[in-house]
Structures are given as C-alpha cells and as structure tokens.
Design a protein around this nucleic acid. Structure first.
Lengths: 188, 188
DNA sequence: CGTCGGAACTAGTCACTGACAAGTCGGTGG
DNA sequence: CCACCGACTTGTCAGTGACTAGTTCCGACG
C-alpha cells in the first residue's frame, strides 16, 4: 500500500499499535512518536486524533471497558457470580494490555465521555452478576465490593507474578478456587 | 544551614522528597531533576546514590515493604486474619506513596537485594497472619491467595476511588466488612 | 602534619519525548 | 469548479534521563 497523505484509518491504526506496545512493554513504553513511526506517519499526526498521550490511553481504556462489558454480557444465562468472577480474571489476562491501562486513573482523562460510557456499561454488567449473590443474609453493597476486590486483586497480583508459585499456572482454575472460597464460603 | 558541597545525607533527603511527590502526584510525577532542585543539589547528584530513576523508586518500594512488615509484625498477638487484612488496607491508605510504587514491577529493579530482603520480610509476615486461617477444611495456598487478593484488590480500588460511594468513607470499617465476608463466610 | 585516594557532588551534553504553532494537502459539499 | 475544513507535515521548544568529565572534600594512613 502506497504511502498516501491521508492514512485512511489512522486513529484505529494508532490504537492497534498502542495495544501492541502495551502488551509487549506496558504503559510506560507507549509514546506518541514511536506509534507514529510504526504506523508510518509524522510524529504529530496521532495528536490530531487523540489530543495528547492521555487522550490515546483513554481511548484504549474505553475500548477495554467495552470489551469487559462484552465479556460479562456474553456469559451464558445460567452463570452465577463465580463464573463472572472467573471471567473477570480471564479478561484481565487475555486483554492485559487494556487491563493495565483501565485502572490507572493518573494516565486517563476521567471526564472523557466515551470512557465514562464504557465504564458505565461494565459497571452495569458487574452489578448484574453480583445480583445473584444477594441472598438476603449479606449486605449487597459489601458483597459487591468484596467480590470485585477479590477478583480485581487476584488479577492484578497474577499479572505481576506476585502470587506464590504454589497457586499453579492455570489462571482459570486458580481464580475459580479463590472465588469459590468467597462465594461458597470457607466452611461449606 | 549554609549550602555546602557535601549535603551530608542526600540519599535520605532525596528519598523523603520522593515520597512527598509520590503522595502528592503519584509515580509519574517523580523525576530526578525536580527532586534535586527541591533538595538543593545539582541535577545529577541523585543519580550518584540511586543510579537511575528505577533505582530511586526501588529504594522507596523497599522502604515500603519494610514498613508493611513492621505494621504486620506489630499487630497484637491476639489478632487474627481479619485484623491483619484490615491492617494491610490501612497501611495502603496511610502509606499510599509507598504502596503505589511497591506493586509496579515495571518501575522497579526486581533484583535489588534490599528490595528482595524487604519483600521477603513482608511475605513472611503475611504468611504468619494467614497461618491462622488454616483450619484444615481449605487449602492454605488457596486461602492465602484469596485473602491477599481480597485486601490488595480492595486497597487498590479504594485508592483509585473506583468503589461505589455506598461503601462509605471509613476505610477500616469497609475493609473489615469485606474481609469478614471471606473469613467468617458469607452464610455464618 | 601532610598527602592522597576515593566518595560526593557539579557542570556540560546528547538523545528523546510531549506539546504546540503554522503550514500543506486533498476530499467533499455547495 | 472552488471554498472549506479535517487530516496530516514540518519545525520548534522546554523538560527529562542518562552519561562523562571535572571539582570538592572527607578521612585514613604514613
């Protein structure tokens, strides 16, 4: 494809390149000039679409929250909180590039409309999953915070390889075992 | 105090300044030149003590893991896993500057001896706390991962103000409620 | 008491980055 | 066919990390 003045789909191309870099080297390695080089445009072209670096990362994060919402919404209707928790962890591992940006407020424009909309979608999907945990004996707010904390913490620590080796190398199995402890109770 | 050629305790001074900046503006705002200006030395002086930026942040992280170990070791002997969990969250909130660096491997020199030693200390302190959870009915490795994931996730999300407002603004109370769900079980 | 070696710090520099301004290109609607 | 405007380029500036070479001072040793 010949080098044309108008790229045609620069925004998407930069976004894709950013996700690739994120996956390989993390958020710190993402810079506009390198992405421009990869895509074959001038160093200032990406700024036209994203404003600045935080605008770019915000777009990645928004895409990530949409993907997360998709993941949770696509769970079979029979799924319970346990399955949703495992899905959350799986999402984090499979879409590490997105996940590592989604929860870094300092990198993002918190007031971006697209980001807020995507966050809202994923929050609703999570609320829906947690609703199944409301058995009357526990405060649903506490239960929701606990469930989210557990899977979010597990995903975070797993991605950092901070967990002890004993937990094995099968994310889904480990996540399920951990989530089961909360959902089914320690003393079933 | 007159400006002398030898600062006297530059390493500690830079470290303190770094923690201050971290607390105010997060890791991204920490740069060697600004710290040098704050402390009143030339722009390259900090590098003499820390090598590079990651060396500085590694020193902060090591200090953080030591502080965490101190916190956990100072718990009264009667404390159970629940109290340890609350202490973990309290530590994260009270020492946010340190906490925000401790679990960012990409910012650190993972092979730094001081860092490894401090991590080892805090790991042992956590293992000790989790030992109280070994009641035979659950795999201790799973229980440990679950407990750590829960409090780590809660602390992380709390610091990001990502949790819904319903959980209140009392960290300790909220952390205790959430941790209780895991320790005592959802259906007591 | 001198001197001398090395640690602590300064000064200068380079490559790289984000951000901005001004100009150019080219598709599209009137 | 032409004016407009979004898409992109070119040029530039300040700030940063990292490196090198030079300067100052402390303290140990003869």
């Amino acid at each position: 494809m010949a080098r044309r003045y108008h790229h045609g789909d620069l925004r998407q191309a930069v976004l894709t390149a950013a996700v690739e870099v994120l996956g390989d080297s993390g958020p710190a390695a993402v810079n506009l000039r390198d992405l421009a080089r990869r895509v074959g445009v001038s160093h200032a072209a990406p700024a036209h679409h994203f404003g600045d670096r935080s605008g770019l990362l915000t777009a990645v994060a928004a895409q990530g929250f949409d993907l997360l919402a998709d993941t949770l919404e696509e769970l079979p209707p029979s799924s319970d909180l346990l399955e949703a928790g495992v899905a959350y962890v799986s999402f984090a591992v499979e879409h590490r590039a997105h996940f590592e940006v989604m929860f870094r407020p300092e990198l993002l424009r918190a007031d971006d409309p697209d980001l807020r909309a995507a966050q809202e979608r994923s929050n609703q999907a999570m609320d829906w999953a947690i609703a199944g945990f409301r058995d009357g004996s526990v405060d649903p707010v506490v239960a929701g915070a606990a469930a989210w904390s557990l899977v979010h913490g597990f995903a975070t620590l797993w991605l950092q390889r901070a967990l002890p080796a004993d937990v094995g190398d099968d994310v889904e199995a480990a996540a399920r075992a951990v989530a089961e402890l909360l959902v089914r109770g320690a003393n079933p």
